[in-house]
């Protein structure tokens, strides 16, 4: 076909919604992939000659992990989207916006919480974060400090919960009085408003007298 058109020379516009592929970009990607594969094979050949095992895949050069294994700061909230209906932003693609649990550091999506949990506890994930698989050992002083801190915290919490009947009664009374005041003020304001309206209306009425004389009483009701 020389030109893309229908049998009667019409151009179909109802298929415009289809994705336009950037063919050059994808050709470039394919070329790059082939090149990488070729290099890997060459390297593997060299390795085989030296009697080493071939490499399975491309290996990212990550810096050596420097930190110890750390606890996650924020809660994972695995069930925060439970029972929600969501629009899938990126159907069929890779990366974020797909249904499931997405790991930003490793650019992976997991379909269930178990797989996701296994991943974020895994060595590979920790490696990307720059953490080793060792946990810090806490000292006695740290433990003592923590216990003292928690003791203070729970003490404060229990003091807050302590129950003083008179004080509470006073609080409730004050609250009720405030509410009553508020209601009273509102009622008063309404009354005031109604009174002002009435005054305005009578003022208008005096103007109306002239129009009545002319035999024109207006469109609305004459009822006040």
């Amino acid at each position: 076909m020389a030109d893309k058109g229908g049998a009667y020379g019409t151009k179909a516009s109802d298929t415009d919604f289809r994705k336009k592929w950037d063919k050059e970009e994808y050709a470039e990607r394919a070329r790059k992939k082939d090149q990488e594969e070729k290099e890997r094979m060459q390297e593997n050949e060299n390795r085989m000659k030296q009697g080493k095992k071939p490499l399975k895949g491309r290996r990212d050069d990550l810096p050596k992990p420097t930190e110890l294994m750390k606890q996650r700061e924020a809660p994972l909230e695995l069930d925060k989207n439970l029972g929600k209906t969501m629009v899938v932003q990126n159907p069929g693609g890779r990366g974020p916006g797909q249904p499931g649990f997405y790991c930003e550091a490793c650019n992976r999506t997991y379909k269930d919480s178990v797989g996701y949990l296994d991943h974020i506890n895994s060595r590979a994930h920790l490696r990307v974060l720059g953490q080793t698989t060792r946990v810090a050992r806490s000292t006695l002083a740290q433990v003592q400090a923590r216990i003292a801190f928690l003791r203070e915290k729970t003490k404060a919490a229990s003091a807050a919960k302590a129950f003083d009947f008179d004080q509470r009664l006073a609080e409730v009374k004050a609250k009720e009085a405030a509410l009553r005041e508020q209601k009273k003020a509102a009622k008063k304001a309404e009354k005031e408003k109604a009174r002002l309206e009435l005054i305005n209306d009578t003022a208008v009425d005096q103007d109306d007298d002239m129009s009545k004389l002319m035999g024109f009483g207006g469109f609305g009701t004459t009822k006040k």
């Binding site: 606890q71 996650r72 695995l78 949990l117 946990v135 050992r137 806490s138 433990v143 923590r146 928690l150």
Partner: peptide, 20 residues
């Protein structure tokens, strides 16, 4: 799930919170 989610990388210090 509790083990995977909450017990990960606990130390003797942070374990106190969980125990409480």
């Amino acid at each position: 799930t509790y083990w995977k989610e909450h017990c990960f990388a606990l130390t003797a210090e942070t374990l106190i919170d969980k125990a409480i």
